[in-house]
Amino acid sequence: MRLDKFLSETGCGSRKEVKRLLKQGIITVNDQIVKDAKSQVNEWADQIAYDGEPLRYQKYFYYMLHKPQGVISATEDKYDETVIDLLSDEDYREDLFPVGRLDKDTEGLLILTNDGQLAHRLLSPKKHVDKEYFARIAGIVTEEDIEQFAFGLTLRSGEAVKPGQLVIDAVDEAAEESEIRLVIQEGKFHQVKRMFEAVDKEVVYLKRLRMGELYLDEELELGGYRPLTEAELAMLEPSN
């Protein structure tokens, strides 16, 4: 790997900023000052330091984000704030992206990473990864709805969706509202909302609670994020 690329990927700045650091003579490789940005280094074996501080290379990054409403699941947008915009300057990387998407008005668990293989494992229908949601519903959710969801629905568009596990948490008959949890394995556009539309009900609030075995850390404030722990990352492996 080129030295300037290594320095950029370890958070020392842009390629242009890194070249200025190199000219200052404060970058060492195996205790030798190196000023050539094109120098090749072994990111795993060489001892590279910035002003005496060792730099450690990390290939993949994984963050748990508590997505708030009003923010879109994209890497960039001309009009709206994106989930990537929520990252601090220190944590921002050009190659980070959200794993899947949550609608603009949906809250909850979203993973940000630069690991494309992990994203594929979590999103591929063939992997059968559970996605659990909490929702408030305008309407009384019934046992009949549970049976329809368990069987598999046909949306108003005519599109079929696979079975989902629907649980009723609470029903307010006076307000004609219900609180539910739903586990699905697909991720079609507006899927949860469209599933309830198919049974003549409306989702008024939606939050994703988990993906696979990974649950949202409820101590994270809306818009907050943190790195995944090694134990949490293991929960996303195929064996789980």
Rank of each mutant, 00 (worst) to 15 (best):
L112S: 02
A37I: 11
T75Y: 03
L166R: 06
G52R: 09
L155K: 00
K188L: 15
G25S: 00
R156I: 12
Y79D: 14
D46G: 12
E90P: 10
V34K: 02
K16M: 14
K59E: 15
F97K: 05
K35E: 04
Y57H: 02
E186T: 14
F134T: 08
L209V: 08
E90N: 10
P54C: 12
A150S: 12
D31M: 12
L214H: 09
T229P: 03
K23Y: 04
S157F: 05
D130R: 03
E218H: 11
A37R: 07
F97R: 02
K201M: 13
E179V: 15
I33S: 01
Y92R: 12
L220H: 02
L214P: 11
L3W: 04
L87G: 01
Y50F: 14
V204T: 15
V129M: 05
D105I: 12
V18P: 01
L118F: 04
L86V: 05
L153H: 00
S157K: 01
A45V: 15
Y133W: 06
G187E: 12
F151E: 02
K59N: 06
F189G: 04
K104I: 13
A138H: 15
E237F: 03
D103W: 06
D51I: 06
Y225R: 00
D169S: 09
E53D: 14
F134Q: 14
I72L: 01
R156Y: 11
A119E: 04
L118N: 00
K78T: 12
L233T: 08
S73V: 07
F149G: 01
Q185F: 15
I146A: 12
S14M: 08
R93I: 08
L110Q: 06
T142G: 11
E197K: 11
K78C: 07
S39F: 14
Q40S: 14
S88W: 08
E43C: 12
F151T: 04
E197C: 08
F149R: 05
L21Q: 01
V199S: 09
V83H: 06
K19T: 15
L220M: 05
E143T: 10
T229S: 10
E159F: 09
Y57T: 03
G13C: 11
K104R: 13
E143P: 02
R93V: 09
E147G: 08
E186D: 15
L22A: 02
G158M: 03
V29P: 04
I33E: 04
F149M: 04
G100E: 08
P227L: 02
L153F: 03
D130V: 11
E43R: 05
F61P: 00
I84D: 00
S73R: 08
V41D: 00
L109F: 07
S124Y: 05
T154F: 08
R136A: 13
V192M: 09
R121E: 15
V99R: 01
L122C: 01
A119G: 03
K23E: 13
A175C: 09
F196M: 10
L206A: 06
L123C: 07
M235R: 10
G224T: 02
Q32Y: 12
V141P: 04
Q191C: 13
V129S: 02
M235C: 11
R93L: 08
L21W: 07
L206Q: 05
Q32W: 09
G224Y: 06
E147P: 00
E219Y: 12
L214Y: 11
V83G: 01
S239P: 06
Y57D: 00
K5F: 12
E76T: 11
